[in-house]
Each structure stands twice: as structure tokens, then as C-alpha cells.
Simulated assay, not measured.
Amino acid sequence: MRRVCAAVLAVTVLVVAGCSGADGPATPAPQPVTIAVAGDVHFAGSSAAALEPGGLDAVAPLLRAADLTVVNVETAITDGGTAAGKEYTFRAPAAGLGRLKDAGVDVAAMANNHGLDYGRAGLTDTLAAATAQGLPVIGIGQDADAAFAPYRTTIKDNRVAVFDATQVLDSSLATAWTATGTQPGMASVRTEAGARRLVDAVAAERSRSDSVVVFLHWGKELQDCPTSDQQDLAHDLVAAGADAVVGSHAHLQLGQGYLEAGGRKGFVDYGLGNFVFYAKKARTVETGVLELTLPGTGGVSAARWEPATIRSGVPVPLEGADAQEAVRHKESLRPCADLAAS
């Protein structure tokens, strides 16, 4: 934990950078870091192009430009297991995680309604593949403690924590897919108890990390305004200490902006859209990379939307007038999200 500076009685301590104490060296003050986040990734259909060498080259510069990059991986990483009894099930080889890492992704958020499409055997394979490919995963684990644990790293003396959880699970599978004290699965905030656990975890993390980000799988498919459940959870997380709350699921972009809650200010993006996906319809191919600057002293000091479009299953950044129009469209979604522009 960072040491707090104080003047005690008549003793004056001169601090040039960070804090110091008689029993230890100065702790450097956190410097601003950038974190890039992007939406839903699978490797089914046309998005299998991302498995090919160079398949993500077009978007890789955006992913690599940030100090830390996180995307939502919406597929089991396995060649085995048994498909769940649902309309859509996704799985991909371990090489998929490797391709994401090569393109600049640092962390895979995997709490969503497809992460366990191939059962607990698929979950075991996913965790093993993450280790083998060297790409950390969050939101899933062998029990609830592991699933709700954040990814932690220190960049430029800025201690960053990233949580992942899902509000979206098929009702027939929710019990089997939710991690508990004795059951593998994912961090679910579908219930009040799950949401409270995440909020409490964020509040506890606030005292040990300089920057706290929460990635969520949430919203209603093909609805470009957030639900009341999304808004309530975003409010509670910002009030608890989250500097940024971002997510995806709707297959569309939703509004982004600043939210004040509990005397704190945080940045919220309710919908990042699809990212590496077999999308074809007009609004479902609208995508992008959100880059946030986290000063390490609370909140988000800058946010930049880098628009892209999905072509043949993979994201391709937009330029010129097309990019400007895409940014305007993203901004037009803010009013129904009830967020501030600055």
C-alpha cells in the first residue's frame, strides 16, 4: 500500500516526488497511463480471418499504442468439451489468444454468455491455453475468488487493477456457469448478491490501487440505450471507486461519457460494439477502440474514441471524413445514456 505523507508534531519531511517515511524509501507518485478497451471477440465464421498471420494487422497499431489493452473474448478456447444447449455456441483454438497477444492485447476479459459454451472441460482448456499463450484472463476461474479477482499491474508507478464480470447469462445456464466457493465458472453480477460482491471488491481495491477499471458484459442486444440495470450498476461501481466502467454485448455501440456518483467522477462506456466478429449488418459492423488516460489520482483525465469498421470479420480503422462521422455518431448516443461530455 502506498505510504501516506504527513507532518508529525514538529517534524517536517520534505518530499520531492511521492511519499517517504523514516522506515523506507520514497514511493514514486503514479504517472498517467493509457488503457485501450475494445468489444466482443470470437473467431467464428468470417472472423476466423483473425487466426491467420497478420489477420489483425490493420488494428494492431491502435491496440499497441496504449500502455495496457483489454478486449472481451466471447468464446471458449478449446478443441474439446460438449456444446451447451443453446442457439449459438463458440469455440476457438488456443492460437486465437496468441493472435490477440501478438496484435497488442494484454488481457482477455472472459466473463460473458459464451465463455463456457463448451462446459467445464472447455473452461479448464481455456485457462490452460491462457497460461500457455501468456495472455492473462479475467472474469473466469476455478472458484468465485479467482473469477472476481482483478488483473493487477504497475505501469509508470501507477498501480492498475482491471475487473471483469457479466450481467448476461442464459437463464437455463446461469446457475451452472456462475462461479461459487466450490464451483468453477465466471464472475456473475446477474443477481443482487453478485453485483454487491463486485461493488465491494472495487471498494476494497480502491485502497490498494491507483487506477481501477471494470469491464462488463451487459445490456440488451440491438438496443442502443443502456438498461436501468446497467445504469444502476455503473452508478454503484463509480461510487465505490471505479475510475472507468466499460462494456459490450448489445452488438451495437452505446453512449459514453462522464458519470458523477457518490462524490466521485468516473468514465462510462455502455457499449463498445462488436470487434472481431462475423457481423455484416450496418450498425453491427460499427466498432472502435476506446483509449482512456488514467492519471492515477482518480477518474479519467482524457478519453478518445478511435473508430473502425468490421470488414470480413476483422476491425479496420476509419480515416478522414469517415472517422469524423463515426465519432459524431458515437457522441450522438450520449443523451439517452445520461452521461456528461466532460
Rank of each mutant, 00 (worst) to 15 (best):
S211Y: 06
V202T: 06
A187I: 10
S188D: 00
K220I: 15
S209W: 09
M186D: 06
V189I: 11
Q183G: 10
A201I: 05
Q183E: 09
V213D: 02
V189M: 01
G194E: 06
R206V: 03
V202A: 11
Q183T: 13
V214S: 07
D224F: 07
S209N: 10
G219R: 12
L216Q: 02
V212S: 00
S188E: 01
R190M: 14
A203E: 12
L216R: 01
F215V: 11
T191E: 09
R196G: 15
S211C: 06
F215W: 14
L222Y: 15
L198Q: 08
V212P: 03
V202E: 00
G219A: 07
V189D: 02
S207A: 15
P184H: 01
G219F: 05
A201L: 08
V214G: 11
C225R: 15
R208H: 12
A193M: 01
A195P: 13
A187G: 10
L216V: 07
V202D: 00
K220W: 15
V199L: 13
W218A: 06
L216G: 05
T191S: 09
M186E: 03
R206C: 01
L198G: 08
L222S: 13
E205S: 14
S188M: 00
S188A: 07
V212R: 04
E192D: 12
A203L: 11
A203M: 14
D210Q: 01
A204E: 14
Q223P: 10
A187H: 03
P184D: 07
S188R: 06
T182P: 04
V199H: 11
G185W: 02
Q183Y: 10
A204S: 10
S209H: 08
V212L: 06
L198W: 01
V199A: 06
L216H: 00
R208Y: 09
W218E: 02
W218D: 02
T182I: 13
H217A: 00
R208W: 06
D200E: 14
F215D: 05
D210H: 03
A193F: 01
A203Y: 07
T191G: 02
Q223G: 13
R206Q: 05
T191D: 10
R190T: 15
V202S: 04
C225E: 11
V202L: 04
V189N: 04
R208N: 11
A193P: 02
V213H: 03
A203V: 03
W218I: 09
A204H: 08
V202M: 10
S209D: 04
D224N: 15
L216F: 01
G194I: 11
M186W: 01
L198T: 08
R197K: 13
A203F: 10
T180S: 12
D200L: 13
T182E: 12
S211W: 07
T182Q: 14
A193W: 07
V212I: 14
G181Y: 06
T191L: 01
W218L: 00
S188P: 03
S207T: 08
T191N: 08
V213M: 08
S188V: 04
R190Q: 15
